[in-house]
């Protein structure tokens, strides 16, 4: 008997805190069940650096710099279904708080005037991702197929969402999994 083909899943964290990834790991013992049906491609879990063709792309975090755009476009190109996971990917979230601060002021505060700094310089190494003047939700840069809300989305919601997708169902979360007050 041949095993059913496993779903390929890629994950990444852009301007996020890895909290959504932690929440994914919080499905605990269900991880064993999960790896029976999915296989991870590019992900902090596998440390694979670039993703190939995938079924599902899970993106955590918003878009705050040029590198984020490259990663995001790679995901969009390769993933059949792209999921904006968590508040930052969906709205920009906490990193977007800096949108009210001028980028010049931001850099000056960090590299010139910060406590303990002397002769600070603004780094200009091409290896460093260049920041945007504002942080954007990923839906403003690429087409997104699904939005999985929460900060982070609860482990059960991620589990339900992924198993729905794996079973070929339209993902559907009960109200209790979506409201937090």
């Amino acid at each position: 008997m041949t095993e059913p083909k496993k779903l390929k899943v890629a994950t990444c964290s852009l301007a996020g805190c890895f909290g959504c990834h932690m929440s994914l790991l919080d499905i605990d013992e269900k991880l064993f069940e999960l790896v029976k049906v999915v296989e991870f491609d590019r992900s902090p879990i596998t440390d694979i650096k670039h993703c190939g063709p995938c079924d599902i792309g899970i993106v955590e975090g918003g878009v705050c710099n040029a590198e984020n755009v490259h990663v995001l476009k790679e995901f969009r190109k390769n993933c059949r279904v792209l999921v904006a996971t968590g508040a930052c990917a969906i709205t920009g979230g906490i990193p977007a708080w800096r949108n009210n601060v001028d980028l010049w002021d931001c850099f000056q505060e960090v590299y010139h005037y910060g406590i303990g700094l002397e002769n600070g310089q603004i780094p200009n190494d091409p290896e460093l991702p260049l920041p945007f003047d504002k942080v954007h939700p990923i839906g403003e840069v690429v087409r997104v197929d699904h939005f999985l809300p929460g900060c982070p989305p609860p482990a059960d919601a991620i589990w339900k969402f992924l198993t729905d997708l794996a079973a070929g169902r339209e993902p559907k979360l009960e109200y209790e999994m979506l409201h937090y007050d």
């Binding site: 980028l103 850099f107 603004i122 200009n124 260049l130 954007h136």
Partner: peptide, 21 residues
Amino acid sequence: AFDLDGALQTARLITGRDDAW
């Protein structure tokens, strides 16, 4: 929704960078 390259202009000015990245 926005001009991707244009949104990097401020940071280019601040850092003085103009490399491909």
